Lab assay of single mutants.
Amino acid sequence: LTVHVGNVTYHFDNPEQAEEWAKRMAKKYQGQIHVKDGQFRIE
């Protein structure tokens, strides 16, 4: 699973971990989480 934050990409084996990280990053950067094809993108 991949989480994109700006132009930085993080890889996770565990979906719960990826989702948790995406939520934390979205809160930190006050962005929206977009989920597409098993990838999380924070914008």
Rank of each mutant, 00 (worst) to 15 (best):
L1M: 13
L1D: 03
T2W: 07
T2E: 11
T2G: 02
V3I: 05
V3Q: 00
V3S: 01
H4Q: 13
H4D: 02
H4S: 12
H4E: 04
V5R: 01
V5E: 00
V5W: 12
V5F: 13
V5N: 01
G6N: 09
G6M: 07
G6V: 03
N7G: 11
N7W: 10
N7M: 10
N7F: 08
N7A: 09
N7I: 07
N7D: 09
V8S: 07
V8D: 06
V8Y: 12
V8P: 02
V8L: 12
V8C: 15
V8G: 02
V8K: 12
V8M: 12
V8H: 13
T9L: 11
T9D: 07
T9H: 13
T9C: 13
T9G: 02
T9Y: 11
Y10R: 08
Y10N: 01
Y10E: 01
Y10G: 01
Y10S: 01
Y10F: 11
Y10K: 04
H11W: 12
H11T: 11
H11L: 09
H11I: 08
H11R: 08
F12Q: 00
F12H: 00
D13K: 09
D13N: 12
D13V: 05
D13R: 04
D13L: 07
N14L: 12
N14I: 07
N14Q: 06
N14Y: 09
P15M: 13
P15H: 12
E16D: 10
E16S: 11
Q17S: 12
Q17E: 14
Q17P: 01
A18P: 00
A18K: 02
A18S: 01
E19A: 09
E19N: 06
E19D: 04
E19K: 10
E20I: 06
E20T: 04
E20N: 08
E20R: 10
E20C: 15
E20H: 06
W21F: 15
W21H: 03
W21P: 00
W21E: 02
W21N: 01
A22E: 02
A22D: 00
A22G: 03
A22L: 08
A22C: 07
K23G: 04
K23M: 07
K23H: 10
K23V: 10
K23W: 06
K23L: 10
K23I: 12
R24S: 10
R24D: 08
R24K: 13
M25F: 06
M25G: 00
A26P: 01
A26I: 05
A26G: 03
A26Q: 05
A26H: 04
A26C: 15
K27N: 07
K27S: 07
K27P: 04
K27D: 12
K27M: 09
K27R: 11
K28D: 04
K28G: 02
K28I: 12
K28N: 03
K28M: 10
K28P: 01
Y29R: 02
Y29V: 08
Y29K: 02
Q30T: 05
Q30W: 05
Q30L: 08
Q30N: 14
G31T: 09
G31A: 13
G31D: 04
G31P: 02
G31R: 03
G31N: 04
G31S: 09
G31C: 15
Q32V: 14
Q32W: 02
Q32M: 08
Q32F: 06
Q32H: 14
I33T: 02
I33E: 03
I33A: 03
I33H: 03
H34A: 10
H34R: 10
H34M: 13
H34W: 05
H34P: 03
H34D: 06
H34N: 10
V35H: 04
V35D: 03
V35N: 04
V35K: 05
V35C: 15
K36S: 13
K36Q: 13
D37H: 01
D37E: 06
D37F: 01
D37Q: 00
D37L: 03
D37V: 00
G38C: 15
G38K: 02
G38R: 02
G38H: 03
Q39F: 04
Q39G: 14
Q39M: 06
Q39S: 12
Q39T: 04
Q39L: 01
Q39I: 07
Q39R: 04
F40E: 07
F40I: 15
F40M: 14
F40R: 08
R41G: 10
R41L: 15
R41K: 08
R41F: 15
R41N: 14
R41A: 10
R41D: 11
R41W: 15
R41T: 15
R41C: 15
I42H: 06
I42W: 10
I42S: 06
E43W: 06
E43S: 08
E43N: 06
